[in-house]
Design a protein around this nucleic acid. Sequence first.
RNA 1: GGAGUGGUAGUUAAGACGGUUAUAACGCCGGCCUGUCACGCCGGAGGCCGAGGGUUCAAGUCCCUUCCACUCCGCCA
Length: 610
Amino acid sequence: MNEISSSEKDLQQEHQQYIVPLGGWRRTHDCGQLNASDNGAEVCLMGWVQFRRDHGGLIFIDLRDRAGLTQTVFSPEVAPSAHESAHILRSEYVLAVKGRVRRRPEGMANPGMPTGEIEVVVLEWKLLNTSKTPPFMVEDRIDAAENLRLQYRYLDLRRPRMASNIITRHKLAQCTRNYMDENGFLEVETPFLTRSTPEGARDFLVPSRLNPGEFYALPQSPQLFKQLLMVSGLDRYFQIARCFRDEDLRADRQPEFTQIDVEMSFADEELVMEMAEGLIARIFKDVMRKDVALPFPRMPYEQAMAEYGVDKPDTRFGLKLCDVTEIVRGSEFKLFASAEMVKAFKVPGGESISRKDIDGYTEFVKIYGAQGLAWIKIRPEEWQSPIAKFLSEQERQGLAKALDLQAGDLVFFQAGAPDMVNAALGNLRVRLGQDLGLVNEGDYNFLWVTDFPLFEYDKDENRDVACHHPFTAARPEDMPKLQSDPASVKARAYDMVLNGTELGGGSIRNHSADAQRAMFAALGFKPEEAEAQFGFLMQALELGAPPHGGIAFGLDRMAMLLTGSNSIRDVIAFPKTQKATCLLTDAPAEVSPKQLRELGLRLREKEKDQ
RNA sequence: GGAGUGGUAGUUAAGACGGUUAUAACGCCGGCCUGUCACGCCGGAGGCCGAGGGUUCAAGUCCCUUCCACUCCGCCA
């Protein structure tokens, strides 16, 4: 091993003697833009060596930059000295070439390459830097392990796919800025160092050196500040805002993420939604060149939960859920008889789904707390099912009618607590939609989910918590029920959903201090607690707050959708691992005793100190 | 906090039934090659099988512990 690495090191080091300064050279083009119309032009390109094809005589180097690839040719006939020295070139060496664009000879064009009609005949070139052999090849088709990619993220980002993701993300942000600016929104920065608030996700805390024992929190969102900006009379605000939440990660969740954060004064739901739809349509037009039909359809939360089992329905396919609780109440099948809720959905023609697949789906729903998965195959002559023998004729007729059953259908059932039933069937429905190819990949089904409840019950805390956040206004007609019947109170909130993914959500806020106080009371805050935590907000609301509301979009998730990525990490330049570490910089890391002392912090004694 | 998948040359994977010297492809190094474009041909180097412990005459393979990455549940107003 020493031999190879030392000889490789020697080779690369030996080549370093050929490195020269730019010496005033400037690029005339990038590596993705030349075509047949540039034939004959003298150009200067700079980039990285993608492939070297050394024919002994001719040498072909594909030069790469973020824009693409251009084939360069080193020819002993055209430029003998340039050709002679080109033998040292290796993958990922950085070079500058000056040369002449020419059409490739007849039959030599590469139609698979945007620049495939031409090549650049090198007249003169400079080695700008060498490179060790990279730990993985800089190509889209290389499937390197994610930890390697993260450790060498700068190499990963050289891959065309990743570079294109970052470019798309930039376009998304830029297009947002243009649209917001055209519509009178001001981009305002809000603090990263702010105060911890009790509701919501876990905060990242920052110790204060000047105030020992006290902590800032990084913002989970700029919510309070943007409301204060409305009280300021700045009227329309937006920010492409970094947000922080110290919760566990997922494929679509990072501890720091970016929101397109928007707030508008003198606005009601309709105005905010109209503006938001305009933004999304603009983004799809500019970034995807796709027209989006406006306005988006709307669906009340209750309908979403009833028919799809989730609050972000994917409406690209059917398989809607059906509540059959009453039909099977008192059934001989004990699991159904006494269940709080029984729901079902049918898979048309699903009779051909194998027992093995059904077993797989049974395992799948157990993730969501289901004990099992009941099913029935509707055959012309009989109902084939482990539970068929328990079903009375009346129950069968009831089910057949409610689900409109035909021969060849397959029905899945789930019985139990509503949360579990909806989660299990709602997610199974999505899974089947994928497995059965019911999703047309070109479809973009936008949807507003509206009429959310204002509260949801938190079992652990044994109290109501805000469904959206505690500054969301209740529907005016529900205000009297805040104390008496909180479960029935609807929020002036709305979520934008695309193909089963929540793109964003928002609400109209309480702009009257009294309404906000009533909200805090309903959430179980004592007046003095509310005052201590949010006194500054209530005071602001008492000093001429206009009616206002807003919305926030997940920019990372949107970038994911626009680029067809499976993970949010693929649209973030430097993401964290699932344990929230950075493999590139090795953050987080221990700090010196001096730093801790200055912050007035002492770490718990480690037990391994022996 | 919990469930699952994976970790073997630089990379991606095969080997899993315990038994000679651990395979392959790509990459890397050397040689040949004037129309390639994932160039081609010939030759070569490269391994503590994630780490630690155990069982055994013998462990990449079996057992235990642990670390790392990923997916999911909980959590994420």
